[in-house]
Every structure is written in C-alpha cells, then in structure tokens.
C-alpha cells in the first residue's frame, strides 16, 4: 500500500492527474496499442481456428513484431495510467482479472505457436487458440468495466 501511494503521489501520478492533455494522450495511446496487440492476437487465433488456411501460421511471425510494438505501447501507457489512482486500481477485481487475463493470454499465444510448430493435433491447437482468444477478450471487457465497477 505504501508503495502504491508513493507511486500515485510521485511525479508520474501528479503529471497524469494535473496535466490537461497528458491523460487523454496517454489514454489514446493505450487504445491504439490495444487495437494493435489484440488485433494481431485475435487474427492469429482465428487462423489457428481454421480461418484463411492458405496462410501458413509461420508466415504470421513477422506480424508478431507489430504485436510486440503494440504491447510495449500499452505496457508503458498502462503503467502511466495506473499512477493516476494506483491505490484504487490495485484493489479492483476488474483490474486484477484484467492483468491476469492478459498474462495468461500472452503465455497462451506462445503456447499456441509452439503447438503449431510442434505439429500437435488440430484439436489441441484449436482448443488452445480458443482459450487464448477468450483470455484476450476478457482482458478488454474487464479493462472497459474498470471504469464502471470500482469495487
């Protein structure tokens, strides 16, 4: 708690609360990063689920770089936004679930790619891809609900 308050009352927290354009700009970056990282993750999952089979899953690799750029944008903008009310966000179940879903979704993305490269059975690949997609969607839903459910 001390750490949360220290961060919230520090330079970043003060900036994001007091600067007029600081918050909207960082918030917009968070939306662009989200569209990028989520977009790539969702399209890869769609492909593994059997959509656009003519694309080799490994040809998707290059797009991962783009996805990582989106992730980096959101990690930085997310850490800045978090400073806005760290002591509140940290205890919101929507926030906790969001972070958990993103972590699991990210790991699953790697697991999906490994399963594809290792030529695991199609049903295994599809099951993993569906779980991965679900995690990322839970990440967006809970992220949006953070603004409404403050418990």
């Amino acid at each position: 708690m001390d750490l949360l308050l220290w961060y919230e009352n520090g330079l970043v927290g003060t900036f994001i609360r007091e600067s007029i354009w600081g918050y909207p700009i960082v918030l917009s970056s968070h939306a662009v990063g989200m569209a990028t990282v989520l977009g790539i993750a969702l399209m890869l999952c769609l492909r593994v689920l059997g959509f656009a089979r003519g694309i080799t899953v490994t040809a998707f690799d290059k797009l991962f770089t783009v996805g990582w750029v989106g992730f980096a944008i959101n990690l930085v903008s997310g850490i800045i936004l978090f400073a806005g009310s760290a002591s509140l966000y940290f205890f919101q179940w929507t926030f906790q679930l969001k972070i958990g879903a993103i972590l699991v979704g990210g790991i699953l993305l790697k697991v999906v790619m490994n399963a594809v490269r290792a030529n695991k059975s199609e049903s295994t690949q599809k099951l993993l891809a569906a779980a991965c997609m679900l995690c990322w969607l839970v990440g967006v839903i809970t992220g949006r609900l953070m603004a409404y459910i403050t418990a």
Binding site: T36, L38, G39, V140
Partner: peptide, 13 residues
C-alpha cells in the same frame, strides 16, 4: 472496443 480490435487486426494483416 472488441469490434475495433477485430477490425484493426484484420487491417493489420
């Protein structure tokens, strides 16, 4: 938000 992610993802491909 879900719609924009799907749309932007498709456009990125």
């Amino acid at each position: 938000f879900i719609g924009l992610s799907f749309m932007f993802g498709a456009l990125l491909v």
